[in-house]
Amino acid sequence: MSKNLELSDRIIRREDISTTTIDGELGMMSEEKGKYYTLDFIGTRVWELIEQSLTVDQLVVILMKEYDVDRLTCEVDLIELLEKLLKEELIKVI
């Protein structure tokens, strides 16, 4: 469970998470855990993208096209976000 994510890992969001959008940002709730989460603008974009399974590397490539960000920053920030989502069981590695 606490294994670190790698670029080749393939992830997808869980389907049983309730979501809502306010001012373009995502709010989420896990009924199982009874916890609430919110994502910022870029986190919301990531959530949109992983409706279908993608590898971490594919995500990095897409985000680099959409935002003005260098590869290293993008990888570090993305993996940090995904690991949080994984820890809260909002996404899964397949």
């Binding site: 809502t20 306010i22 001012d23 373009g24 940002e25 995502l26 709010g27 609430y36 910022d40 603008f41």
Partner: peptide
Amino acid sequence: LFGGEKLRCII
């Protein structure tokens, strides 16, 4: 506050 912050605050 807007977006996620706004929702968090209300919750």
